[in-house]
Design a binder for these strands. Structure first.
Lengths: 174, 174
DNA sequence: CTCAGTGCAAACCGTTTGCAGAACG
DNA sequence: CGTTCTGCAAACGGTTTGCACTGAG
């Protein structure tokens, strides 16, 4: 903080590697590298959470940046296109974003329906599923989405019960 | 059509079994059984597609029914609660609905990113995944969502290519 | 200097809600 | 007959877009 030479210059030597990657992408595409884009990228790459746009806006505000929502959306679009960031929809009515530079290159999500905590896990079985699908259906998988909803350990230990109001085994009782 | 005794009466003897099931659910819940609810249920149970609300509205219009969108949404909510119908979000910006009275009780979806065709497939591997997750993470699965996006056979045969614009293997090139 | 980016506010669009009148039970 | 439903239209909320201004290259 004391030796940083002021530098309003965006995405240059001082930047962390993942942000430089985004700069590379932008240059590759012939797009300007702006301080706003850097700021949004920094928030996303710095966090290990699944961030909503509001989360990102809030984080930016905390660090003194004042960036419009539209710019955040537009930058996220670029980040997703660059494949540095992944977009998720956990059925909350809005999207979440997660950078792809973690130690878990490919992973799926466990989502607690009680406390909304998201846990990540890996699954080789999915490769088997994709191979099977390729063979049996002639379908070429490109990407997938596997989310398992249920109760996380701590909610179970807290004694949370799930209520079922629907018809049970409807087929049988016709 | 000729012998039907006019009957504006909703969800009674003449109705197909799955619609009677919905009537049973409504009565169990102490809710009125209305002709609108019957009409919406009939459209959903009659189709083997993944219907959007617009699809349903359109089908109702074709059969002469004039039912407001709000009522369709409200009825779908009841159908989902009753567990007779499943709600899907294939990332199109709106929901789709599919009844659960088919021959494939539990199935996953293959979604063609080119032509948007949805194919269903079953996967025992998923049970294995859920069991593993139960053991390794203490997570109790309740429901899941597995969607594989890619190219269906006919789009591949039609020579469709997917364009990749993002950075390839970003981690390596820092 | 030029072209794209930014910020604001308005538009969008699927979905939800409030309310007066109609229907179920 | 009271309670719930229906239909309309307005509200909602996340996301997108149009446009004048700013800034990157």
């Amino acid at each position: 903080m004391t030796e940083t030479p002021k530098a309003a210059s965006p995405i240059e030597e001082g930047s962390p590697p993942f942000i430089r990657l985004f700069g590379r992408y932008l240059r590759d595409q012939g797009l300007p590298v702006t301080s706003q884009r850097e700021a949004v990228a920094k928030v996303v790459f710095t966090s290990e959470e699944h961030l909503s746009v509001d989360d990102i806006e809030h984080a930016l505000r905390l660090s003194g940046e004042r960036i419009g929502k539209a710019t955040i959306y537009r930058t996220l679009d670029l980040l997703v296109r660059s494949r540095l960031v992944e977009e998720h929809d956990f059925g909350e009515g809005f999207k979440r974003y997660e950078h792809r530079l973690s130690n878990q290159p490919v992973h799926e999500h466990l989502i607690c329906v009680e406390c909304a905590t998201v846990t990540e896990f890996e699954s080789d079985e999915l490769y088997r599923i994709e191979n099977r699908v390729r063979g049996e259906h002639g379908f070429m998988p490109v990407r997938h989405r596997l989310e398992i909803y249920g109760l996380c350990r701590s909610c179970q230990e807290a004694g949370v019960q799930l209520t079922t109001e629907g018809l049970i085994c409807p087929i049988e009782i016709i």
